[in-house]
Computed example of a mutant assay.
Amino acid sequence: MGQPFPAVGYIHVPIDLLLRLNAAPVDLFFQSHSSSEPALYCRAGLTLDHAPLSNLVEVGICDIYVRMGDLQELGASLRDAIRAGGDEAPGADQFAALQLAAAAEIEQTVRLVDCSKFVALARDIGRDIVSFISSAKVLPSELFNIARHDYNTFVHVTNVASYSVILAERLGVSDVAELEQIATAAMLHDLGKRHIPLKILNKSTRLDPHERELIELHPTRGYVELCTRADLTHSQLMIVYQHHERIDGGGYPVGVLGTDIDPWAKMVAVVDVFDALTGKRPYRRPTTAANAIDFLTRNAGPHFDAEMVKCWVSALKQT
């Protein structure tokens, strides 16, 4: 049974994750059809009966809905429950809780006029991601399976940051501080999109030339906003500025050749496209991981760094 599309202002939470809680920290809602308004399932503070929730999963309903404004509190409660479970908590639950705990803050701070709060948040979440990946021992394919793939800012940036850390480790980066810098910059890579009208970002039909031009300005807008900060390195800034450049010079915003693209930007370019292809977008359905791998492989050399594509594909196929 397919899941209904959540009403505006709500977001889905996997029931399997809620089964780690004894009480509902926030109001929980049920939506039976895409056209229906969410109905209250359990009020905040009440005991969560696990049996009815498990029955929903058995009939193919895998999600409960919460208000966007409640995500931070729900995520914090889930992370507390997972930490209390110690090493027994599976990596899937740890990462899902990490994403939800970060969600509300990301969605709120990314649109502030001054980006300082979002930069600080990106650093904190980047540190959490590196810690999670280092301790949970989750394979890249497992991380792909547990990551969310819906169309929300917090989903894309946390996925790209996590994939970037994994790929960096596979490429030989072992210094924790360096990995945290990579994760932080990957969290910031699309910062310039906050200056693009949502009606363009969420457009379900083909972009016209003017809209395409605005989209292709986002690396420049993000770089200009961040380049005077003393707390970001050159390579971090290049992740923001160059993650859409191509090896053959056919990328944007400048069209530089591969020899002039920062290695970190080349790395993020690979996982950014992988996540974009496998995630839901207003204008298309997500593709499979296998199809995304095929796209990266076919374009390794002219578009993407061939060695980094090879490394990422090898990591995903590891069992």
Results as ranks from 00 to 15, higher is better:
T259H: 14
V57L: 13
D93R: 01
R285A: 15
I166D: 06
L139C: 06
D87R: 14
R246L: 03
Q94R: 15
R79Y: 03
P140V: 04
G258F: 12
T184D: 00
L28R: 01
G250F: 00
I182A: 04
L78Y: 13
L257Q: 14
A186G: 03
D128K: 14
V173Q: 01
V313Y: 08
D70W: 07
G60W: 12
K193C: 12
D16Y: 09
Y283L: 04
V113C: 10
Q108F: 13
F132C: 09
A120N: 08
D27Q: 00
D124F: 07
A168T: 04
L74F: 01
A103D: 08
T287M: 14
L188S: 02
E216T: 11
Y283I: 03
A23M: 10
I82P: 01
V13Q: 04
A23S: 13
I293P: 00
D190H: 13
P209D: 14
R284C: 11
L98H: 15
T288N: 06
K199Q: 13
R79K: 05
D190V: 11
H12V: 08
P38C: 09
I166M: 14
A292D: 12
I125R: 00
D63R: 12
F304I: 11
I15V: 07
L40F: 07
S32M: 07
L46T: 11
P140A: 05
S135V: 07
A230E: 06
N145Q: 14
K193A: 13
M238P: 09
S174K: 05
A186R: 02
E216C: 13
I182Y: 06
L198V: 08
A120I: 07
A290N: 10
F304S: 11
N291P: 00
H234F: 05
K266C: 04
I196F: 00
G258I: 10
T47P: 05
G249I: 05
I129M: 06
S35Y: 09
E178L: 12
D16M: 02
F118P: 00
D70K: 04
D294V: 10
M267V: 01
E245I: 05
F304L: 13
L17V: 09
T153C: 09
I82H: 01
D128E: 15
L100G: 02
N291W: 11
I166N: 07
D272K: 05
D128G: 05
A265R: 00
I15T: 04
F5D: 14
H210G: 10
P253L: 13
S141G: 02
E178S: 09
A97E: 02
S116Q: 06
I146Y: 15
Y65G: 03
P263V: 05
L139N: 08
D208S: 11
F295H: 12
C62V: 13
K117W: 08
N299F: 03
G45N: 06
W312N: 01
S235Q: 09
L17T: 03
I15P: 04
A97S: 10
L296F: 02
V130Y: 02
D128F: 05
V309P: 02
E169A: 14
F30M: 09
R284N: 04
L143D: 06
L257W: 07
A103W: 05
